[in-house]
Amino acid sequence: MNQFLLRHPKSIIGLLVVSFVLMIVSVSYIAPYDPNHVTMKERLLPISSEHWLGTDHLGRDIFSRILVGARTTVGTSLLILMCSLLIGIPIGLFSGYIGGRFDRVLMKIVDAFMAFPDYIFAIVLSGLLGPGMFNLIFAIVIVKWVGYTRLVRSTVITEKHKEYVLLAKINGLRSFQILKKHMIPHIMGNVLVLATLDLGKIILMIAALSYIGLGAQPPTAEWGSMLNEGKAFFYNAPLLMVIPGLAIMLFVLMSNLLGDYLRDKFDVKSKKVGI
């Protein structure tokens, strides 16, 4: 194990990310204070041994809110990712494999989605649907699934004419079996890489939407809405913005590094050794 880590320094990053997620998810149950408990006497306290990261404008413990907020932010982004994968992958598989008119119509829809910058689209959509976590999830999933559909479809289109697929047809495998046995192993690597890179973007998007008031609603602890609430006190108590900002930055950084690492890892097989 140690040798493995030494040879693959980037895997340390992966381990860090996993332990980071595990930590925040489990620690949220042992947060030192009730994250929503308002104590006006203790508002805007600096860092101390009682309040490790100080308190906010309503006297709530920032450390506890960051921990609990991690659950909202990370949990929500994982949920969004899941939904995007569950919608995007099957559509990409079928669209690429079946081809023809079905594929053309679908790709027009996908193109239409992709024509808009994803932030604008998500903002407009959740603006129309109204603020709230559920609408936010819905809006981001609508923006994100198309990327997976495109990726999966292009892989399927290059692979489906290869001889091994013809042979599978000759051997009587049905389309569904061919997709399952032959196509899914091909797309999983790429999808995993895109998903880890996307995780960071989704968190940023949740935070951004919450920051402008479209996502998590007070008093829910969420990193983006914490930023939003803190902005009025930035000059007096910059910690209110710096701490959630740092939390977001760290998580995005780690998920990107994990994505890079996975990309390298999945590339190894395709690299030709020698000449």
């Binding site: 290869k162 001889e163 091994y164 013809l166 042979l167 032959h182 192993p185 091909h186 097989k269």
Partner: peptide, 11 residues
């Protein structure tokens, strides 16, 4: 078929 590499699924 002709191309042995494409006749076996690399994965």
């Amino acid at each position: 078929f002709q191309n042995p590499s494409a006749s076996l699924n690399p994965k």
